[in-house]
Simulated assay, not measured.
Amino acid sequence: MALAVCLLFDPRTDRLIRELWARLEEKGIRTLESHTHGRHLPHLSYAVLLEWDLGVVRSAMEDLPDKGGFEVSFQGTVAFPRGRAALAPAVPADVTARQEAVAAAVREAGGLLHRHYAPGRWVPHVSLATRATGTGLVVVVKEVADVLPLTGTIERAALVDSSTGQIWPLPGVP
């Protein structure tokens, strides 16, 4: 499927997002909790690659400077085509520059970057629902609104194979 450069949350934020996934699942909305292999982590992706050489991409990510973790503030829901719904985070200004550096590094490493992660096209989001349309989207928006505002902390990064859930931790947060 894909390899993603993911930003991962502190335990508290991870737990709160998983609780939101569980509430949505109880209401019949499919989330990352039950999607594909069921081993998804709450995350914010810097990049999604459609083709890659794991060793080369991993080395490129490890060569990027550690910019450290940061706080995000979730302010609402974003709806994408085909029923995908996500938390919409406000992020510090330098995070866009970080994402662009990651996108450039994976391209230089020979990775084929998904078009939605190209510089200038990236929309920061934390995936919730995988197929919420019509009334399902209304349920997602209501459940999200009931827990907002919410702040969270990005504290680590990893490469994640979305087809298997396999994770390769990175030494820092690019």
Rank of each mutant, 00 (worst) to 15 (best):
L112T: 02
F74K: 01
E51S: 08
G110A: 04
D14N: 15
C6F: 07
F70T: 02
P89V: 02
L41Y: 14
G69C: 06
T96P: 08
V78S: 00
D14V: 11
V57F: 04
R30L: 13
A93R: 13
R82E: 03
L64P: 06
T31L: 03
R84A: 15
L7M: 14
P42F: 12
G28Q: 07
L113C: 03
A22W: 13
R82A: 15
G55H: 15
A86L: 00
P11L: 11
D66S: 04
D14H: 15
L49F: 03
L24E: 04
A47V: 04
R115A: 07
R30D: 15
P65I: 01
R12T: 14
Q99A: 14
V91D: 02
L32F: 13
Y117N: 03
E19Q: 13
E26H: 12
V57Q: 03
Q75K: 11
Q75I: 12
E71I: 11
G28A: 11
R15H: 15
G111R: 00
A88F: 15
H37P: 06
D10F: 13
R15I: 10
L24W: 11
S59C: 08
T77R: 02
R15E: 15
V72C: 00
R107P: 01
A101K: 00
W52Y: 05
V95W: 07
L49D: 04
L112K: 01
L20D: 04
E19P: 12
E100Y: 04
D53A: 12
R98C: 06
S45Q: 10
R115K: 09
F70W: 08
M61H: 04
P42T: 09
A85P: 01
G38F: 10
G83N: 03
G38I: 13
G68M: 08
T31Q: 09
R23C: 09
T31A: 09
K67Q: 09
T13R: 05
V91E: 02
R39H: 09
G28D: 10
F80L: 02
L87K: 04
E25N: 14
D14G: 13
L44D: 14
Y117M: 01
L49H: 00
R115W: 05
G38M: 08
A22V: 12
F9W: 14
E25A: 12
M61S: 00
D66H: 06
P92L: 07
A104G: 01
A105Y: 02
A86R: 00
G55F: 07
G69R: 08
A47N: 00
A60V: 07
G110H: 00
V91P: 06
L50W: 05
R30F: 12
L113R: 03
L113N: 04
A103Y: 06
G28Y: 09
L112P: 04
E19N: 11
S45F: 08
L41Q: 13
E100R: 12
H35R: 13
R115P: 07
Y117I: 13
A4Q: 05
P92Y: 00
L8Q: 13
E26Y: 10
R30S: 13
P119R: 02
